[in-house]
Design a binder for these strands. Structure first.
Lengths: 336, 336
DNA sequence: CTGTTAGCGCCTTCAG
DNA sequence: CTGAAGGCGCTAACAG
């Protein structure tokens, strides 16, 4: 039924070792025999069994990447960066979706490890004790991608979320806004949630503006939660003149809510966020946002992982990529 | 270094066969020894090697799914359906992104097959001769997901794209529109491209409306191509009063282009599309669209695949799921 | 209920 | 440059 390396060997009149060599591009094969083997492979339709190969060689040339939420375009972009570099180094990548559930994250990490991936890229939210536990028992390198662990023990590549938020809010402040609301992510999420919230607070503080928890709401990163939060702000007696959303999608929800209330962006309320996903230009007015270099985060983390897998020594295990603000039309000045 | 089933056996004072049994939940193990084994596993931190298991059992309990474009939210939703059912039947799924490139599709299909997946779900564009070639040499079941092959030889689950397009355009027609433009996908793409275009033409024809290729443009499914196409239509002397876009994203691009030109949706131009992705409600005005049941397409195809993998016999290999029109605010009547 | 014994398909020394 | 032989870690009969 299934044709094995042995069949090919017989067909080509060589030993299976030789077939193995040509399949693995080992140079120590005479061109003539190499050709014979290729022909036999072709004739028989031989397809190497990666499972057997993995068992024998103890390498699978595949890296597992766990995606928190496949329907989030941010991660899609990061994945593109990962893939491009992976291809470059001849690694296969297998994606596993974790549905933003911690329990599922742990599960896929373990499945991936059981499948003997040569390395693991973890994009996700919080890195808990349980995660670290799972990572510790892995005997392959792991790098965190678009997230970090609190202790900074695990190699990672990410932006400085606190600073990104600080800059976003700073932009609003420098435009004259003094009553700035925030639509935050969950505070349990260290990167997209907590850190961005901290950046918001620090920016306020540095500008001598009061912090008022009346104008911060916690959303779940989705569009709908952005409109919900904004609905609340819009009805406030002392309505904010600007809002900082932790993510693009919530920002877009906020913009639409503002418009649905008969107000205008940015004339009545300015909106800014962190992310700069493709969606940022898919709204009217187009969204001003602090951009995180998604593709690069993916590419750099994959590159780091290849080094780790080859046991090359790396200088810095945790790399922080720069962010920048991209100005579009959702932020205005305060003139009243 | 790595702890094997053999180590566990020694630690627990049983044979490796027994360890294998408890790991695989074979009922034929005395509770007491089962407990001993579990303890040994715990103590040693044993993690089964899926590669070795796969080689020995000739099953990997994983199915491969190839995604044409990970950054397309449509596929993300389909993937969710796939995953839920896969979990239900205890299959792991590994996602492989093909970047909308045929060459890469073929490559990931082969990698997946080499990895000995127990089945394959192919979401993609055209199923070419080369695809069929790759499928043919696979000796595991394959089902097409959100696409079909022309000959209908390969099991598949999808909607009737031609009819969906027909209904979308029909909606416009019944609202009184007679000059209806189309932003199509590439005609090489049988499902989202060609079929939807055919539906458009048939609807026109059945209504006795002339077909005018001045008002059909081919886009690439992305937002930008939607605005490009619309830009062309908007400047036409005999400007269309409605446009049918093959996908949501292009429709949203069209809406924004219309608005950027100082016109209004749906007052000046109505917009409708096929898909009904999450983004359909993330525009103003919200997009009226023919909905394809993405989640169900994923779920049903995965269910079908499980049957095929278990060699149960299935009645119909190609299933067509119903679509429906969901009305929001982007379609208006014609009153001038 | 439990142990023994063959492999699964391939890679990898080690000889020659 | 090529062949022979011994596993990789686990499952699957087959005995007992």
């Amino acid at each position: 039924m299934t044709v094995t390396i042995y069949d090919v060997a017989r067909e080509a009149g060589v030993s299976m070792a030789t077939v193995s060599r040509v399949v693995n591009n080992n140079p120590n094969v005479k061109p003539a025999t190499r050709k014979k083997v290729y022909e036999a492979i072709e004739r028989l339709g031989y397809r190497p069994n990666a499972v057997a190969r993995g068992l024998a060689s103890k390498k699978t040339t595949t890296v597992g990447v766990v995606i928190p939420d496949i329907s989030n375009s941010i991660f899609a972009e990061v994945a593109r960066g990962i893939e491009d570099i992976a291809n470059m180094y001849h690694y296969n990548i297998i994606l596993c979706n974790a549905d933003k559930k911690k329990e599922k994250e742990i599960r896929v990490i373990n499945t991936l490890l059981e499948k003997q991936v040569d390395g693991l890229l973890f994009m996700g939210g919080a890195v808990t004790e349980e995660h670290e536990q799972a990572f510790r028992t892995a005997n392959v390198p792991i790098v965190l991608c678009a997230t970090t662990d609190e202790k900074g023990q695990i190699p990672s590549v990410d932006i400085d979320h606190e600073a990104a938020a600080y800059d976003a809010v700073g932009k609003l402040i420098s435009n004259g806004h003094t009553r700035i609301a925030m639509i935050s992510g969950t505070l349990q999420d260290p990167a997209n949630g907590y850190a961005r919230f901290q950046g918001y607070k620090r920016a306020l503080q540095d500008a001598g503006l009061p912090y008022d928890d009346e104008i911060v709401r916690v959303g779940n990163y989705r569009y709908e939660s952005g409109v919900e939060a904004m609905k609340y702000f819009v009805e406030l007696a002392d309505r904010p003149t600007a809002v900082f959303a932790a993510t693009d999608e919530m920002a877009i929800g906020a913009i639409h809510c503002i418009q649905d209330s008969g107000l205008h962006v940015p004339e009545d309320i300015s909106v800014i966020s962190v992310d700069n996903s493709r969606m940022a230009s898919m709204v009217r007015p187009q969204l001003t946002a602090v951009a995180q270099p998604m593709y690069d985060i993916g590419a750099v983390s994959m590159r780091l992982l290849t080094k780790l897998m080859k046991k090359e020594n790396v200088e810095r295990g945790t790399v922080v990529l720069p962010h920048e603000i991209v100005e579009r039309q959702s932020v205005g000045g305060i003139s009243k």
